[in-house]
Design a protein around this nucleic acid. Structure first.
Length: 374
DNA sequence: AACGGATCCAACCGCCCACGC
DNA sequence: AGCGTGGGCGGTTGGATCCGT
């Protein structure tokens, strides 16, 4: 497999970046985007390799990076996730908004790892080194429980991470709906191709007068019918078009929010839990404006091959929910989960789980002045 | 003040994987 | 199928800074 020629062999600069280099890189990316990292340095007038530029951008210059001291909450998140995921810094970083994997990795290596070691916990396994910590039932039994819980949590986190990725893609998709020029690669088809998602999609034209939209919708194409009577999804994720949607109201052109729709043969209105993409304004006559629109209801996979609407029901702040939701739920649920999970799973193990995290966090939360270990 | 060890963290290195040809 | 390339990831390095003696 080919390997890119490293920087020094090409006579390119290495080492710390100067403010001038940062400025050049920032200015170029702000104007052109990064595109191909390999081609970027010459275009931006930098004597650096593309990889160095990419790292500098992703770890330092990117505008959505939070720098500075880690909060207590962030520390807790890192410790919890590291216990479950190990050194998978990028996976951990997905749960810490605005922190880079490199920063988290450094913080772990320089602060948290040592702190755990001082507390008598193995930084790799997060288990007591001598088997005495947290032990009320005997070291071996406790260790077995911890291992078992860690396996469950790890599996659960894998699923969480997958959902988080999908939500991120969905978020980008909504952003694409708002401003396609910012994210040209996030068309419905491309998004669906890149993840386990499908789109119910309708296309039609209608007119708007005053604040409401109503009118007939017609479809340019025919589509397969699903078993539940809804329309237009292909397994490949390529949107199909439907004749089913016949009326629309309470929708705002350009808005990704909810709309009320009524399907053929159905009397009641229902909220479209997806996004509405108004493609063009065709004409305006008096106070009436006609639109050509396409509607995409995002479907995400559930268990046993079922598909569910992917939007957040009733949400009027979909974006913030998707950005904060999973990591927030993850953390908040670490204790509450024990009360809401399937009771057949065993309340005792849930309590152990809660105690496990509490015990870790109690130690971590203890300031040096409060703990004899520091 | 000077020195040396400890700590921090930006940056680099090397491996891996996905993708296109 | 094999190769070249781009990019992501985790591990490591080394210069800068801090801190104790």
């Amino acid at each position: 497999m080919g390997r890119s020629v490293c920087c020094d062999k090409m006579g390119l600069k290495k080492g710390p970046w100067t403010p001038e280099e940062d400025q050049k890189l920032l200015a170029y990316i702000e104007e052109n985007g990064h595109g191909s990292w390999r081609a970027l340095p010459s275009k931006a007038g930098l004597q650096r390799c593309g990889k160095s530029c990419r790292l500098r951008w992703t770890n330092y210059l990117r505008p959505d990076i939070k720098r500075g001291k880690f909060s207590l909450q962030e520390e807790q998140t890192i410790i919890q996730l590291h216990a479950l995921l190990g050194n998978r810094w990028s996976a951990i970083a997905t749960h810490l908004p605005k922190r880079t994997d490199n920063e988290i990795k450094n913080y772990w290596n320089t602060h948290l790892k040592k702190r755990l070691a001082r507390m008598g916990l193995d930084p790799v396994t997060h288990k007591p080194k001598n088997g005495t910590l947290l032990s009320s039932n005997g070291p071996s039994k406790n260790a077995a429980k911890l291992s078992h819980m860690a396996q469950w949590e790890s599996a659960r986190l894998e699923a969480e991470a997958r959902l988080a990725r999908e939500s991120k893609i969905r978020l980008n998709y909504f952003k694409h709906q708002l401003n396609p020029s910012l994210s040209p690669d996030l068309s419905p088809t491309k998004v669906a191709e890149s993840t386990q998602m499908k789109f119910k999609s309708w296309t039609g034209s209608f007119s708007k007068s005053s604040d409401a939209i109503s009118g007939d919708l017609e479809s340019p194409t025919s589509t397969p019918t699903l078993s539940d009577g809804t329309q237009g999804v292909t397994s490949s994720g390529v949107p199909q078009h439907s004749k089913q949607l016949i009326e629309v109201k309470d929708a705002t052109p350009g808005s990704p929010d909810l709309a009320l729709i009524k399907q053929e043969g159905v009397n009641e209105w229902k909220g479209l839990e997806g996004t509405i993409d108004f493609e063009e304004i065709k004409e305006g006559i008096g106070n009436k404006v006609s639109f050509t629109a396409s509607f995409h209801e995002i479907m995400v996979p559930g268990l046993e091959g079922q598909w569910y609407p992917g939007a957040v029901p009733g949400s009027h702040n979909m974006e913030s929910q998707m950005e904060e939701g999973f990591s927030g739920q993850l953390l908040n649920n670490s204790g509450d989960r024990s009360l809401s999970d399937n009771e057949d799973a065993g309340r005792g193990s849930c309590e152990d789980n809660k105690n496990y995290w509490n015990s870790i966090l109690n130690f971590v939360n203890s300031s040096p002045s409060e703990s004899p270990m520091f």
